[in-house]
């Protein structure tokens, strides 16, 4: 495998390999010297057609800890809006000798499109494509759950994870559904029916419209960001009604099992999908997700880039 485009492409062994490697990376990140020479001389491009400071700096930190050269390319406006096209941009970066392109794009499938084109020969890492996938986010989520509930090794068999909120538009949800299933966890999607994608009943998940009924069952709950503008498309009547039924507040906190985790991919809408009390509670691992994101991204970069060119990939 030369690219990381979707968690659906990962095998069980590959997913575990990434998590195990990330564990080593985390160990180094906790040590006194956070810099490794591993990817010295490699050029990694952060190609962001969509703003996401968090994801960009996480990848940037990961690449720099492995001593790669990092170029940040923020291409405002896609070809749709008559800006620079994906093709031209990719070819430009190819001409500069990029070994890997980390792509964030508002169009679903953009990373796959880039990987299957001849526009670049480097590895493509999907850092979020439209409403499709965000594989490194799911990997860091799995890493966080494994660390807390599985002692940092093995898979997630026997655990139940709820993903709550705007499933319809969430790339984080899609990547998590594939990966959590692959690792043996049971997934419950919780949202108003308008925010559950059509055909989701065919996914390997349970679906519920009732957060209160689900919370006592779960080992971890992932709260998704709800965009205020969804209201204009009639997905739910008002922010207040949404919070009332699907917000994680202090009352709902009490419904959860003692050691269960509260997660959020960020950025949070405090007061909408999650209250400050929940976000800052002892069960919240939201900040740790950020830390783990760097380790997981280091692992992905290592596995995709460290081996001999065109040979890297035996292990992932």
């Amino acid at each position: 495998m030369r690219h990381l485009l979707s968690t659906a492409d990962l095998s069980y062994a590959q997913a575990n390999k990434i998590l195990d490697t990330a564990k080593e990376m985390a160990r180094i990140s906790e040590g006194p010297v956070k810099k490794l020479p591993t990817l010295r001389g490699r050029t990694i491009v952060n190609l962001f057609f969509e703003d996401s400071t968090r994801t960009r700096i996480s990848f940037e930190a990961a690449a720099k800890r492995l001593s790669a050269d990092v170029i940040n390319f923020s291409a405002k406006g896609s070809s749709a809006s008559k800006g620079e096209s994906l093709k031209d941009t990719a070819q430009t970066l190819q001409a500069m000798g990029a070994d890997a392109v980390i792509l964030r794009h508002s169009a679903s499938g953009a990373a796959q499109r880039l990987a299957s084109s001849h526009w670049t020969t480097g590895s493509v890492i999907n850092a979020g494509d439209g409403t499709h996938e965000h594989p490194t986010q799911a990997l860091l989520d799995a890493f966080t759950i494994r660390k807390h509930l599985r002692g940092g090794t093995g898979d997630l068999r026997g655990l139940t994870v709820a993903i709550v909120g705007d499933i319809l538009h969430s790339r984080v949800a899609r990547s998590n559904i594939h990966l959590l299933n692959l690792l043996g966890a049971q997934v419950i999607l919780v949202a108003p029916p308008t925010l559950i994608p059509l055909g989701a009943e065919k996914w390997p998940v349970q679906i519920s419209y009732d957060l209160d009924a689900v919370l006592p069952l779960v080992d971890a709950v992932m709260m998704l960001r709800v965009q205020q503008e969804r209201m204009n498309d009639f997905f739910f009547p008002t922010a207040r009604e949404y919070s009332h039924y699907y917000g994680l507040n202090s009352d709902r906190l009490k419904l959860m099992k003692p050691n269960s985790l509260i997660m959020h991919p960020g950025p949070m809408n405090r007061g909408l999908e999650i209250t400050a009390e929940s976000a800052d509670s002892a069960r919240s691992v939201i900040l740790e997700q950020v830390t783990n994101g760097v380790s997981v991204r280091m692992a992905v970069l290592y596995l995709l880039l460290a081996g001999a060119p065109n040979e890297g990939g035996d292990l992932i």
């Binding site: 499938g109 494509d129 499709h132 899609r174 055909g199 989701a200």
Partner: peptide, 11 residues
């Protein structure tokens, strides 16, 4: 629109 569009994240 259907199972596939939902999986692919396309409207």
């Amino acid at each position: 629109e259907g199972f596939l569009s939902s999986r692919l994240g396309m409207k």
